[in-house]
Amino acid sequence: MPVRHIAAGPAPARQGSAPPGAEGPALEVRQLTKVYPNGVRAVAGVDFTVDGGEVFGLLGPNGAGKSTTIGMLTTAVTPTSGTAYVAGHDVVTEPLAARAASSVVFQDSVLDRAMTGRRNIRLHAQLWGVPSTSAARRTAELADAFGLDALLDRPVDTYSGGERRRLEIARALVSEPRVLFLDEPTVGLDTRIRYELLDLIGRLRSRSAMTTVLTTHYLDEAERLCDRIAVVHQGRIVALDSPAALLARLGPEVLELRGSRDHQGALALLRARGLADGAAFSVGTTLTVPLAGSAREAADTLAALGDGASSFTTRRPTLDDVYLQLTGSSLTGD
């Protein structure tokens, strides 16, 4: 899979003054690679830089290498080659300092279920060296902010899935990390809880100078929360940009053609008439074409083609389209 576009540039400028202690990149990753002993190349030389205060998304399907990348940044996975710095600390040579500057919310619930929520938070504070008075104050603030007041003194066993997730995020924040890693934070949650959690994560942005790295395979999550998104495919970053810039790659409108017998022919015709722009891509029997001309004219052209296409529609592009274009079968129409 060729790299279509990598812009490992800085984050878009954010409003307000730079957060204290956030000079320099919060994360700097160069040619980071992980090859497991069984020969699987999970991460194949990724490069990116994340600024202080930025919300950065690693977007890709299961097995793309997102969690392995997070594992290397949190020192649970040893890189095969390359370098990674968390808050200026090399994850290989200064793992304790790198871990001290960060917190992780894992994909699965990682809590002592027999203990209360408060006890789980207190343990995190103790292990991250937060003085007990500060830990108590922050716990109270976070419990209030996350709606955990009534739950904190109950055993975690009695929490719902969404409550556990909120507790885990609160726990991660009690040490005021410079970098918060959220590994697929909404997987397995029902829709309502998922949206509540997204709202909560979104609110973190406005109340903190913390850098957040979010992995997800939900494109709407990435679009809603992230300043920039790295699209990861087969261990490589195939695109890195702001959601708006990624969407702009497909133009204002795309045409979606379903059931056509001849994708190449349809695309060639649209191209010949100057109606198709950018890279078209197909998934299954669906061809998606970024449009250069009018949607009406494209529709008329395809109707005239009469190749048995069952339906075609035009719509605004989504991040799904960007993702599929980057990771699916591309067509030239030549």
């Binding site: 990598i6 812009a7 320099g24 490069d47 830089t49 600390h89 103790q126 292990l127 060296g129």
Partner: peptide, 23 residues
């Protein structure tokens, strides 16, 4: 493809707990 390397400013040392307290 654009590659931009920002200067790496070393932050103040981040401290964790003392080993005995952690243990």
């Amino acid at each position: 493809m654009t590659t931009l390397t920002l200067p790496l400013v070393r932050p103040a040392p981040t401290v964790g707990p003392r080993p005995l307290a952690a243990w």
